[in-house]
Amino acid sequence: MAAIRWRAWRPIVLPLLFAGALLLAWQELTGWLAVSPMLLVPPSAIWSVLVQAWPVLLAQSWPTLVNSVVGFLLASGLGIALGGALVVSRRVEQAFWPHVLIFQLIPKVAVAPLFIIWLGMGPTSRLAFAVFLSFFPIAVSAATGFRAADPTALRLCRSLTATTWQTFLRVRVPYAIPHIFAGLKVGVTVAIIGVVIGEFVTAQEGLGYIIMFASSAAQTALVFATIALLCGIGLLLYGAVALGEWFVRRWYGAPISAGGFE
């Protein structure tokens, strides 16, 4: 009985144990080896900085969070719309799909300075940059999803004299949703990355700015504390998307794997 229970808990307990042990080793070794606080600070020091600088960090995390969320939502809308537009006709797909794929391969991060020139140093350029970065993975996965519908289901719709729009809404969209969520999960992290890079480059406000500022001032503990907060935001937003996916899966009530329906 106990053995069975352990087997069920093992996949959860073991990783947590490992993470805990890692933190403990980090804490103890930094003290033991007298590592310079410039290079690495123990978790306890990070925690105390996090508590001390909490009001500042909270104020600076607000623009980062808002830009990320708004950027992600805009990118989702645009990406899903473009993904749908791409599959409207075979010709449209042939004409634009290669461009979308090539855009996936090039280092779009480097475009950041252009956004500053176009939209200034303010939050608008960071927002636009986040939209620009997270738009592509969402569009690609949406287009993939809209094409992933079971071909015989499409044939069934044709035999039932369904209109293109009926087929799209009732068959293509439901088949696409698992794929779209895969894209959204990538997109939400990429949106945060876009905002943070924007904050690195413009150095006006936000957690990215704090990280740059603290690292140039060699305040390593503050760098770590800010990164920890940023990771918290990242996990929070990812969790929100994952929660949405969970609800959708429950509504489907059918086994769904990463690649669509089983």
């Binding site: 073991l14 490992f18 993470a19 943070v196 890079i197 690292s215 760098v223 940023l230 990771c231 996990l235």
Partner: peptide, 29 residues
């Protein structure tokens, strides 16, 4: 298997964070 069970979920969770933000740390180190 035990190593995988210990490390894999941590590695996956690590991918969900915006790792780009760690760039300045590498400059420090």
């Amino acid at each position: 298997t035990p190593l995988r069970e210990m490390l894999y979920p941590n590695l996956v969770a690590f991918q969900l964070i915006p790792k780009i933000a760690l760039a300045p740390l590498f400059v420090i180190w």
